Deep mutational scan, measured.
Amino acid sequence: KFNKELSVAGREIVTLPNLNDPQKKAFIFSLWDDPSQSANLLAEAKKLNDAQAPK
């Protein structure tokens, strides 16, 4: 279960257009550290992506 959630969340995070590479890497490392938090980490990444969207 975690492997699928981890890969789905990881793929989504790397495609978020408004995150820079260090931010993406930080989220990916957090996913590896605790795969059970993949849904929460993906939600946080999406929030940050939205907040950094060009206005």
Rank of each mutant, 00 (worst) to 15 (best):
K1I: 10
K1V: 12
N3L: 13
N3S: 12
N3Y: 13
K4L: 12
K4V: 14
E5A: 10
E5Q: 09
E5V: 11
L6P: 05
L6S: 06
L6T: 06
S7H: 13
S7P: 07
V8D: 14
V8K: 12
V8H: 12
A9Q: 05
A9L: 11
A9T: 10
G10S: 11
R11L: 13
R11T: 08
E12K: 07
E12T: 07
I13Y: 01
V14M: 15
V14Q: 12
V14D: 05
T15K: 14
L16T: 01
P17C: 10
P17M: 08
P17V: 07
P17S: 05
N18D: 02
N18T: 01
N18F: 15
L19A: 00
L19M: 02
L19S: 01
N20K: 10
D21C: 15
D21T: 11
P22A: 15
K25G: 05
K25F: 14
K25L: 14
K25V: 11
K25I: 14
A26N: 07
A26L: 09
A26E: 06
I28F: 03
I28L: 12
I28R: 00
F29G: 06
F29Q: 14
S30E: 08
S30K: 14
L31F: 02
L31G: 03
W32I: 09
D33M: 14
D33G: 08
D34Q: 07
D34P: 04
D34Y: 06
D34E: 06
D34A: 05
D34I: 02
P35A: 05
P35N: 03
P35Q: 04
S36W: 03
Q37K: 08
Q37T: 04
Q37C: 07
S38N: 05
A39Y: 06
A39R: 06
N40R: 13
N40W: 13
N40A: 13
N40F: 12
L41C: 06
L42V: 12
A43N: 08
A43R: 07
A43P: 01
E44F: 08
E44R: 05
E44V: 07
A45Y: 01
K46S: 05
K46T: 05
K46A: 04
K46F: 06
L48W: 04
L48M: 06
L48I: 06
N49P: 00
N49R: 00
N49H: 01
A51V: 07
Q52H: 03
A53Q: 07
A53C: 06
A53T: 09
A53G: 09
P54N: 10
P54C: 13
P54I: 09
P54H: 09
K55N: 13
K55I: 14
